[in-house]
Design a protein around this nucleic acid. Structure first.
Lengths: 156, 156
DNA sequence: CGCTTCGCTGCGAACAGCTTGCAACAACGG
DNA sequence: CCGTTGTTGCAAGCTGTTCGCAGCGAAGCG
């Protein structure tokens, strides 16, 4: 469904313009790539590589800056997986990430699972948890099988 | 209480030797510094700096290697706060960290708070959560006051 | 439709945090 | 006290990200 995607593109760009930003070829390409990657977990680097397929001289630093801008607009959000990787995604697909320490697999879980925790932390610690901002770490179903007796030890 | 701390030092070093490792001046200094920092959140860099006060030519890379070794021995564990900082602590002081996105303040909460979540993720997703491996992100009590209407926006 | 403004971009340099290859060194067993 | 081999200092290097700058071009205006 190409139409839906380009509607979203238009929507994001409109938002950029509303806030006084300019619509440039570069931005259009970056936002398009971001929409394309919607259902995956893209790092800034990966996004840069993809954008550069069609527009070889869009610089990585521009991708970072554009992601910053979109974050300020509330369109984009990032999540820190452990280890240093930071992935970006649109805010309308908010969810929590579980990263396997063994194989690196990413599982998505709905934020609702965290509601009880959010409440406890709010009530007992006055802390307003934003669970989606960092990925949780542990061992996934596959690896748990082979790791049962040892526990997890791989780096993350 | 100097006795208790040096008992722990001896214990850790004994463990190192048990596993075929060697007890060097360098290691002694690093482990000592780690025990000293027990109740704080130390990055490898900070640890290196502290060790270097007394032993100026212990290199940072050695600190990293030693921390790795101690991690393999199960004595030390690290936690990723968002943003890139990684802090190390002894495994007998396991707890969860909450990092404020606004001011960077760190709150410690007992792991027990996460037991229900651990169960849900185990039962519904076959994921064995290791909650202490990454710090959770949100807004602390202090900052919540001034941020109430805006929500969080600072980087982490 | 061309001018002006100033936000955006490419580029290179720089930075933080961490890892690695290597040769010298020193801990421990004998 | 010697040899083995794990450990270390050092420098180089790598990844992910940020920054300063000068030039370009989007958008508003006449």
């Amino acid at each position: 469904m190409p139409g839906g995607s380009s509607d979203r593109l238009r929507g994001v760009l409109a938002l950029v313009r509303e806030k006084g930003g300019r619509i440039t070829t570069t931005r259009r390409a970056i936002v398009a790539a971001l929409l394309d990657a919607d259902d995956h977990h893209v790092t800034a680097q990966l996004l840069a590589e993809r954008v550069q397929v069609g527009n070889p001289d869009i610089h990585a630093s521009t991708v970072y800056r554009t992601l910053d801008t979109l974050t300020e607009l509330g369109v984009v959000e990032h999540t820190h997986l452990g280890h240093g990787a930071t992935v970006y995604h649109l805010t309308d697909r908010r969810h929590q990430h579980l990263v396997c320490e063994s194989c690196g697999a990413i599982t998505e879980v709905p934020l609702a699972v965290f509601d009880p925790l959010v409440e406890v932390l709010r009530d007992s610690y006055a802390f307003r948890l934003r669970p989606e901002h960092v990925a949780l770490s542990g061992v996934c179903a596959n690896c748990a099988g082979s790791d049962l007796d040892r526990g997890a030890q791989d780096e993350q």
